[in-house]
Design a protein around this nucleic acid. Sequence first.
DNA 1: ATTGTCTGCTTGTCAGACAAGCAGGTGAGC
DNA 2: GCTCACCTGCTTGTCTGACAAGCAGACAAT
Lengths: 253, 253
Amino acid sequence: MDMPEALAIRAVDRPGRLSDQLVAALRGRIESGELAAGARLPTEQALGARFGVSRAVVREAIARLQADGYVETRQGAGAFVAARPGLASFRIGTEGKLGAGELAQIFELRAAVEVAAARLAAERRTRGDLAAIRAALERMARALAEGAADGAAADDAFHRAIATATHNAYMQRFVEFLGHHFSESRRPSWTDAGRGAGRPQAAQREHERLYAAIARGDAGAAARAAEEHLRSSAARLGVGPAGRRTSRGGGER
Amino acid sequence: MDMPEALAIRAVDRPGRLSDQLVAALRGRIESGELAAGARLPTEQALGARFGVSRAVVREAIARLQADGYVETRQGAGAFVAARPGLASFRIGTEGKLGAGELAQIFELRAAVEVAAARLAAERRTRGDLAAIRAALERMARALAEGAADGAAADDAFHRAIATATHNAYMQRFVEFLGHHFSESRRPSWTDAGRGAGRPQAAQREHERLYAAIARGDAGAAARAAEEHLRSSAARLGVGPAGRRTSRGGGER
DNA sequence: ATTGTCTGCTTGTCAGACAAGCAGGTGAGC
DNA sequence: GCTCACCTGCTTGTCTGACAAGCAGACAAT
C-alpha cells in the first residue's frame, strides 16, 4: 500500500470528523487504482497506526466504504477492494460544491429521466395524481404572485408529483434524489433579481404546458414539454446548453 | 421512539453483522415515519441498551445512516433525522433480491437513461469512442460464436462503451451502476437454454443496429435503436412490458 | 430582563480486551 | 511421498471503560 507518514491525517490539519477524512483518503486510493480491485487492505491496526487514529475510527471509515461497495470485509481474513468498487450506491457531489461543468452533466442526466417520467405520467396518471400535480402547480403560482420565498420548494413538489404519477417507485426516488441535489442551484432563480427577470414566470408557463399534456394523456406532447422546460431551465440557471441536443422535438418513438 | 424490548435484535436471531441489522431497523423506523424528520434519535447509549448491543455497534450503524443522509449528528447535541431522509445516495435492492415488479421498474429507469445516452453518444462520439464500442461488439460476437461464458460481461462492456461516448461522467456512472445491479438478472440469457432460444443472437443484431446509428451520427436512429433493444431485452428477461403491473390489465395504452 | 458562567449530557475519540472465524503450517497416519 | 485433521497466529467483530470536545438549559449576578 505504501502510505508515507507525511500523508497521515491529523485532527489539527483539517477540522471535521476523522473518519470522514479517512474515508476520503481510502476512496481516493481505490479510485486512483493505487489499491487495485481485489487487493487486500492493510489491517485495521495498521491503518490506525499509519494515519494516526484509533481502530474505532478506522472501523467506522471501512464500514462506510463497505456500505458504498468499495470494500468487502471477511471476518478473520481481512478487508478487500471490491471487484467493481463503488457501484453499490450512486452519489453526486462527494467533494464539496459542484462546478458548472458537473452541474451541466447532472442536468443532462436529470433531463433524460424527467422527460421519460413525463411520458410515463401522461400514460398512467390517475385522477389523484392529476390533482396532486395541479395542486403543486397552483401552489407555485401562489408563491409567484405573493412573492413567497418557498417557490423552489413548490417547483420541487411539481416535479415530484409528476414522478409519482409514473407509478414507478425507482423513477420517483431518482427524480427526488436529483432534485434534492439541485435545490441549492435552483434557489438563485427565486431571488429578487431572478424574479425581476421573469425567470419563475417563464418556468411556470412551461409547467402549465407540461401539466396540460399530462392531463389529456398526450405522452408525446408531455415529453416535448418536459424537454423544452428542462432545456430552458438549464439556460436560466446558466449551466449551459447541456450538450448540443439538437432535439427535433419528439423524434423518438 | 417507543421500541418494545421484544423487538430487540440479537445475534442469535439472525446471523450477520449486528450493525447491519441495526441499520435496517433504524432506517425502517425512519421511512415508516415512526421517526419523523427533524426528530431526535435516542442517545447512543439508550439505543445500545434498547437493542442489546454495545455503543460501538450503534455508532457504526449511525455512521452509515449518516452517510446515506438519513440522520445528521451534532457533537454534544445528539443525532437527528434529516429533513429529507435518504436523499444523499441512490440505492437499489437494499433488501435481498429484487422481485419481478421491482426489476421491471428499474428496467424502465434504465431504458430512460440509456436511450438518452445513445442519442448523446451519436452526437458526441469520437473515433476512439467508436473503436471502443466496436471492440465490445466484436468481443460479444466472439463470445457468441465460441460459446464463451463471459457474454454477459461483453454485453455490459458494450453498454458501458456507449455511455462513455456521451462524455458525461455522471451518465456513464449511472449506466454502470444500473448495469451492475442488472448483471445477475441478465445472466439467464447466456445459459445454454437461452442461447438455444436465440436470445443473445437477437440482442446482438439490435446492438449492431445501435452501433451503426451511432457510427453515422444519427441521434434519432440511435435513440430508436436503443429503445427497441431495451424493450426487447425486457421482454426476453420477462420483466416487461414495464408498466401496468397492477394485476388487472387496465384498458389504457 | 439581560448576560455570563456553570453543570450535566451527548457525541467523538482512544485504549484494551475477548470472541468468532480464516489461512497457512505442522505433524500424524497411510 | 501424499492426504488430511489439527493447531497456531492473525484479523475482523464486539464489548467495556474512559476522556476530550461541544452543546443546551439552569442558575446566578448585574
